[in-house]
Write a protein that binds this DNA or RNA. Sequence first.
DNA 1: AACGAAGTCAACCGCTAATTT
DNA 2: GAAATTAGCGGTTGACTTCGT
Length: 203
Amino acid sequence: MVYMAPKKESGGTGNKRVVMNRGAWTAEEDRKLSEFIEVHGPKRWRNIATKAGLNRCGKSCRLRWLNYLRPNIKRGNISDEEEDLILRLHKLLGNRWSLIAGRLPGRTDNEIKNYWNSHLSKRINAKEKTREPPPQPVQDVAPPSREGCPEAALPEEDRGATGDGNPCPEFDMNDFFDFSAEGSYGLDWVNKFLELDDNHLNH
DNA sequence: AACGAAGTCAACCGCTAATTT
DNA sequence: GAAATTAGCGGTTGACTTCGT
C-alpha cells in the first residue's frame, strides 16, 4: 500500500519557521538516510536529519530507520507462531509493545501494535463477549506494594499471569526476563515461557 | 458502477526517562 | 545539581484500500 503524504505543514513558533517534510518517505529520502547511517551509525538523530540533507525532524528519521530501513526487518506475514507469541506476551506484559517486539526478531513495536489493534484485539473482544464473566466487586483496599515489579505499571486488567491471585505461581517475571539484556534474541526464554504457559493452560 | 463503512498501517504527537553539557 | 538535549515509548491520526450493499 502506498501511503501519500498528508498535506500539512509543521507547526513551530516565531517568524522564521522551518517547514519540514512530513508524511510518507520517498525512496530518495530512504536512500539518503540509509547511506548516512551506514557511515555514521544511528546516533544523534537531529544531526542525522540535517547532515544527511533530509528536511525531516530527527524523530521522523529515527522512526523510519527503526521501522523500515533497519537491517533484518521482517514485514507482514505474521506467522501463527508469532501471533500466538504476541497473544501470550500481551497477556503477560500488556501494551508494552517494544518489550513484546523485542522478543520477536525482525518485528517492530509499531507493527506489533498495529497488528494487535487491527487483528488481535477484536478477536479477543469477540471471545470475551461469548463468555461474559460476571462483574467483579470493586475493591477499595489498595493492593500490596509492587515496587520493582515491571507489571506494576500496568493497568490491573493487563497484569495477567503475575497479578494477584497469580494463576501461574511458579512464574516470576523479573526472574524470567533479564531486563538488563534487552535486545538479546535468544529463544530459550521463549521455549521456557511457552512451556510454562502450556502447563498452566493444561491445568 | 457507485457509494459509504470498516479495516489497515505509516507517520505523527505528547510525554517521560536517560544522557550530556 | 540544574538545564538542555536526545532517545524511546505508547497512543492517536488520517490517507488509502477493501468490502458490503
